[in-house]
Design a binder for these strands. Structure first.
Lengths: 329, 329
DNA sequence: CTGAAAGCGCTTACAG
DNA sequence: CTGAAAGCGCTTACAG
């Protein structure tokens, strides 16, 4: 491998000069610069990144730690982060915390030891401590310690779902919430409830019931059954909004069992827009999380290198076949 | 950040000695060693990885390039590779090739520039060139250039599926293959066909038809319909083996449309054991790819640092609800 | 604008 | 067994 010295010799300049053209330093005059460039080309010179790292104490690598890369949402985030980083000539180092706060701690420390230029962490459920780092740390999707959070605007997203449903004429609505111990579950619920409240008037009241569950399929199926079974079509809700796509798909499943037609007799909405949402029958109306923008903003913050406030990015409602106008029964 | 010099001063030894205890060099005598260890502890010393990299010209990082981390199979592979690497104190640098051979090329070069200690590549569909690298490169799942391949034993796996079906009494079987341009599709098909042939005797013949398609849901659904529709239950196959879970799930879908009961009237098998396979109704009998072992073997090869031959790792058949004995119609 | 030189924090022959 | 010293390939004040 040729070194900067070889290039310098070949171009007949000092290594300092080579280094300056390498760093796009404007001070090197045109003729010299060209000779250097030519020499680099000819030798197929590539700077030794380790040497540079030793001097500058930082490498062109972004650390990323996620609870589990196998989770489709996180892998989409990872992909977009990697693309965003690549655009700027950076690589990403990936670590899984397995939803374990200690492992998370260890992984972040290991990344910091490698002198990455910043780390993005999608936190495990519980907390996260402060790290003594002189590079930016940002939390993504789930809050990590004291670091600024980039996340979907869950409150706003739920409100959009509420708008959609009410706009379709629904006046008896059930909301299936996520576990209240999770910030994101609370935000989604609050956004939905608040909007419904503000839309409900004494002339045109909206009935809303809230049912707490977990974010998974089974929870959606169980709670859906509870809401639907036994109730006559005059009393039961005409729409069920779920706090996650998985829950919503569970509701779809139980509606099929109960012979309740969707969307003719019941509208169902999810949240997230996972891949399955577009594959189930009927395809699910949901709120798409702005994954590209989440990733983009997180990466940007690494490069900005300055503390910034939390950022909530608006999602986008995608209307498919699981919602419709309320039938005139 | 304390350096090796600080530790040496505090322990009253030379930096060489500190470096030797760092590298677990046995030559340092007990009393000295302890003093050094104590000093490191006290100062919370962590070696500067960039400096080490500059000297040794290699870092404790494995490069991984996959076509798309968003693909569940690849993300599972990535997770297991990361875990395996972490066990040995290594991190992994992740890159996506987006199924583009040029991008793949670039990504591998970038990884090599960073002096990773090896790179694992799940190749894009077409080929891959040779890289001049003095570190091991291994292809995983899909062959990359001239580098040794670690993959599931597709041939053997398909044969196991054939055994299972024939053991259940099936004698009219249809096989839905993948695109013949792909090595893995050919291997799966050949394994299945060969085993069926060897099991078929003139006394107890087995009828087998083969239908080429793509690996996705729609292809399975379309071909399944072609096979099933119009045929009477006396002439149509009693079992359909698909070359992928996605195809098999497509078959499930069209069987439901056609009111063909599974497994009472038709057995269906897949290949891969994707997460969905255990979620569909009925749950799918399939061949599970040995992901942990694939990842483990690939990582091992990086550390072995010596060229090795291809390795085919046997998968495991997982019998669920989509297969049963042939009904006595 | 360019060169000479120091120095980043390690590892590893080379002595003794 | 341990120390003194060279050197890995860069970057960056400091001169001129």
């Amino acid at each position: 491998m040729p070194t900067i010295k070889d290039v310098a010799r070949k171009a007949g300049v000092s290594v300092g000069t080579v280094s300056r053209v390498l760093s796009k330093n404007e001070s090197v005059k045109q003729p010299l610069k060209e000779r250097v460039l030519a020499a680099m080309q000819e030798l197929d010179y590539k700077p030794n990144l380790a040497a540079r790292a030793l001097r500058t104490n930082s490498i062109d690598v972004i650390g990323l730690v996620v609870p589990d890369i196998t989770n489709p949402f996180f892998s989409q985030l990872a992909k977009n982060i990697e693309m965003e980083a690549a655009k700027r000539g950076h690589s990403v180092m990936l670590a899984n915390s397995h939803d374990d706060a200690d492992a998370e701690q260890t992984q972040i420390a290991a990344l910091l030891d490698r002198a990455v230029c910043g780390v993005i962490v999608v936190a495990t459920s519980d907390g996260g401590q402060t790290h003594k780092a002189d590079v930016p740390i940002v939390s993504l999707d789930r809050r990590f310690g004291p670091y600024p959070l980039v996340a979907t605007d869950h409150f706003d997203g739920s409100a959009r779902i509420a708008d959609h449903l009410v706009g379709l004429g629904h006046r008896r609505i059930a909301y299936i919430a996520g576990p209240q111990s999770m910030e994101v579950a609370r935000q989604r619920q609050e956004g939905f409830v608040a909007r419904i409240k503000s839309l409900s008037t004494s002339d045109d009241p909206i009935m809303l019931t809230v049912h707490e569950g977990h974010f998974d399929y089974d929870s959606g199926e169980d709670i859906g059954r509870e809401i639907l079974k036994g109730a006559s079509s005059e009393t039961r809700p005409t729409a069920i909004a779920a706090a996650s796509d998985q829950q919503a798909i569970g509701v779809l499943r139980c509606a099929r069992d109960l012979k309740i037609a969707i969307p003719a007799d019941l509208s169902v909405t999810g949240f997230d827009d996972i891949a399955l949402a577009a594959l189930v029958v009927p395809r699910l109306t949901t709120l798409r999380q702005p994954i590209e923008r989440l990733a983009g903003s997180a990466v940007e913050r690494i490069f900005a290198r300055e503390a910034a406030a939390d950022e909530a990015i608006a999602g986008e409602i995608v209307v498919r076949e699981s919602t419709g106008t309320v039938s005139s029964s």
